Every structure is written in structure tokens, then in C-alpha cells.
Simulated scan of single mutants.
Amino acid sequence: ASRSVPVRGENNAATTRTKKITGRKRHVAVDTLGLVMMVVVHSASLQNHDGACFVLSRMKERFRRLQVVFADSAYGRNGLPGWVQEQFGWVLQTVLRPVGVKGFVVLPKRWIVERTFAWLARYRRTTRDYEKTNLSSEAFVHLAMIRLMAIRLARP
């Protein structure tokens, strides 16, 4: 059976003139249940293409049976699908909006990652950029998911 994983990035806080802070992006790969498999946090000055390369490179060692990766339409640019096929042998399939549809549309596979970001937003340390380093920011994403999984396992 093929395994698939949705990947998407999120701008946590872009650089603003009023706040005088630099932003970070979180790129998250989740399984079909929405549980985090891999997270990469980097500065907001890097493009989504670069963040996806970081995530997928880290995933190569852990998830060897992976065959299909679903991604946001932003990851379909700059030759990323071809690079993923060449480097890892995986198919990077972008989830596109239906043609001619206006307004909000629930996109298949993409809502799984959006739901994960909503779960992460419920935890104080992952809602805003409190951390000094990218590694500690990644660690708090993992801690939030560990707490979420522990609560689910403890239910009768």
C-alpha cells in the first residue's frame, strides 16, 4: 500500500515595521490523521520551496516506504515536483483549487494540515513566536503534539 503525507508551510509572523521582529515559517508534514511526522522552522525570508526541501530531506531517512506527498499549490513551483522525484523517488502531488469556484472551498488532503495547524494554535507556546531559536520552536511543536496524542490515548 502506498503511503501519502500532506505538507504545508505557515507564516508565523512576517517582518513588520511596527513590531521590529523577524518572522519564521513552519513547514509541517503530517500523516493522514493529522499527526506531525516532521516539522522544520526557518526564517520567513526563505521561500516555501526551500522549506519543503528541508522537510523532505529530513523525512528521507525516517520514512523510506513513502511514495506520495500531497502539498499546497505553492510547492508546485520552481521545479520542486521534479526535484522530489529525482532525489527521493516520491511523487509530489499539489492540491489545487477547482477551476471556476469562488469563495471558500474545502480542499481534499489540505484540510488535514490546516486542522493540525488549528490544533497547534490551541497551545500558547506555538501560537506566537516566543522562542529564540528555531530548534526550540520545533521542539514545542513536538511537545504540543505529544500532549495531544497523550490526551487521546488516555480517553476511556
Rank of each mutant, 00 (worst) to 15 (best):
A1V: 09
A71R: 05
G100N: 12
L66R: 08
R8Y: 07
G100K: 14
D129M: 05
H42P: 01
R124F: 09
G103M: 04
A71D: 03
R152S: 05
N134F: 12
G79H: 02
L46Q: 15
F63W: 14
F70E: 01
L35R: 01
R17C: 11
R64S: 12
V28A: 10
A144Y: 14
W119A: 03
A52C: 15
N11G: 07
L143Y: 15
I151V: 06
V39H: 00
D31M: 00
I146P: 00
I146F: 14
V95S: 12
S136M: 13
S73P: 03
K109C: 06
R64N: 04
P81Q: 08
P156D: 00
L80Q: 10
G79I: 02
S136K: 07
G103D: 00
V84R: 01
F70A: 06
R124T: 10
R152A: 06
K60L: 11
F117P: 04
D50H: 15
L92V: 10
F70L: 15
A118Y: 00
Y75K: 11
V28C: 11
Q87R: 15
A14R: 07
K25S: 09
A71N: 06
V55W: 02
V36W: 00
A118R: 00
R155G: 03
K132V: 08
Q87I: 09
T127V: 15
E131C: 11
W83D: 01
A52N: 08
Q87W: 07
R147A: 13
R8S: 14
R58S: 14
K25M: 10
N78K: 15
N78S: 14
S45P: 00
A154E: 01
A150C: 13
